[in-house]
């Protein structure tokens, strides 16, 4: 049985405004039988961290196009995107390019 996962989440490029204006978050994902992947993390974020207007961050099961995702400082497109299996102490960064003024 897997132990709970500790992750560091970072929101930038304006995305932090959807998360109480806080850039850095440490979260602990509960223990579960299947390994956590990015798809499940996003569902968890939507259910637990997004206070308002989830459509600004999520589109369907994935992040809205225009939001860049880095896993341990590498483009998630290289890591398997939604299929990436999270490890304890992983660092996940979300940078929005959608805000402007």
């Amino acid at each position: 049985m897997a132990a709970p996962l500790g992750l560091h989440l970072e929101f930038g490029g304006g995305a932090e405004l959807l998360f109480d204006g806080v850039k850095n978050h440490h979260v602990t994902l509960p223990d579960q039988s299947n390994p956590w992947d990015m798809k499940q993390l996003l569902a968890w974020i939507r259910g637990n961290m997004l206070k308002e207007r989830p459509e600004l961050f999520m589109q369907g099961d994935t992040v809205r196009p225009g939001i860049l995702v880095l896993i341990n400082d590498a483009d998630w497109e290289l890591m398997g995107e939604l299929d990436y299996q999270l490890q304890d102490k992983d660092n996940v960064v979300f940078i929005s390019t959608l805000h402007g003024g």
């Binding site: 930038g12 490029g13 304006g14 405004l17 860049l68 880095l70 400082d73 483009d75 960064v93 940078i95 929005s96 390019t97 805000h99 402007g100 003024g101």
Partner: peptide
Amino acid sequence: VLYAYFKKLDYFSTECIY
């Protein structure tokens, strides 16, 4: 965005309130 991020450039990113 990634160039700025990896180079740790100091930039501002808030939406114009209007």
